[in-house]
Write a protein that binds this DNA or RNA. Sequence first.
DNA 1: TAAGGTACTCTTACGGCGTAAGGCAGTCAA
DNA 2: TTGACTGCCTTACGCCGTAAGAGTACCTTA
Lengths: 233, 233
Amino acid sequence: MATRNEPRTEPRIPLSRDRVLRAAVKLADESGIESLTMRRLAEEVGAEAMSLYYHVAKKEDVLDGIVEVIAGEINEVVGRIDVPSKGAAWKSAVRQRVLAAREVFLRHPWAPRVFETRADVSPPVVQYFDALIGLMRDGGFSYDLAHHALHALGSRALGFTQEMFDPGDGAGDEESTAMLESMAEQLPHLVGMLREIAHDDPDSTLGWCDDQTEFEFGLDLILDGLDRMRETA
Amino acid sequence: MATRNEPRTEPRIPLSRDRVLRAAVKLADESGIESLTMRRLAEEVGAEAMSLYYHVAKKEDVLDGIVEVIAGEINEVVGRIDVPSKGAAWKSAVRQRVLAAREVFLRHPWAPRVFETRADVSPPVVQYFDALIGLMRDGGFSYDLAHHALHALGSRALGFTQEMFDPGDGAGDEESTAMLESMAEQLPHLVGMLREIAHDDPDSTLGWCDDQTEFEFGLDLILDGLDRMRETA
DNA sequence: TAAGGTACTCTTACGGCGTAAGGCAGTCAA
DNA sequence: TTGACTGCCTTACGCCGTAAGAGTACCTTA
């Protein structure tokens, strides 16, 4: 049963923090963040669970590292954007960067949850925010307004929102739709709203919102509001 | 060792789904959500872990139930609010309710995380949103605008935001502040901003933001933007 | 009063988790 | 040659969620 000890046939790439973290991201991409366990991660890199601990301190450290990897990916993407940001142009500069960051999260749907549970600030994330503040400064923001702006944007600054009614991938829709319909009397406004939306967008069995459109709506609402404050300051 | 089997001295309140859920909230309030395990929850209600399963399906069900309890608490609080909401008054009506809901979350700091991980919509939450839509309708919102509004508000509609740099209770502040200061060259904008904030608000060792103020800033920014759309519609 | 059903709680046990403690092989400097 | 250091592995512990099924108390019906 020498499945593991065959140094000849399988050259065995040495472990490293970076390799472990990349494998963790891959595992989460493929099987979801809940299936990221130290044992499975070890298997992914062809080692035993305890071997990982030579390269990472503990599982929390893996999660911290994952954030760095994703934030690095974001910085790489937004780093390629080079548009004017002076004066009124700040808005589209920020907008473009946020939407570019969002695309990274769309590739890693499990990532927002991980970001949200990290208390500590990691260098790549800090770097991203620094650049964002820079754009606002170009637009004439005071530090105070830029600070408020970051709070107002919240996680939207990084490209994601936490939807309260996340319909997932349409799973369980009929069920909850039926549930809502059956409560039409107690929920007149909500049911009315949903009926109209379903009517206007008939392709939906109530799928039910276009996330990208809604994200941009909220983003623009905030950016426009900030822009007005910038001008009247 | 008849510590448990003494039906006389300890009358033993019967278990129930409601009692289990309330105990779960209490446990989370006192020791944090991460210490909410079926065994500890059982201990809290004076029973064995497996006994809980007669009243709840599984741990996920407990978390769903917790959301219902908290949302119920919110509905109770906002239900006592009765202010005009016709026309322009919609804004302060919504504002008041959101801030009232926020107070409930301030009493249960662990709750946002639980809300965010629930995919399914629970009746009390749905009821809350229905009332919110009702206020917007009073203000003259189309269903379409109300729908956009809910997305724009996101979790803010329920009274919380996910802060990207949550300083917790000031823990680890000096450390991260020092880290940032040492990176002043790479992070000119961020460090500049923080220096000014620290300067303007000298009591802070960088504690560092007034969450309530920032929450209201973002909320008002969004509500004002929506109000303008309402008027020009 | 006896018998059986129902509602609730418990005991036992299993597999999976994160990780502490320490062993062992390969490499490299003295 | 030796001994330290690096990198990976084995073993084991305590905690977790929960499946299976055995009591136990009470209530109904005869």
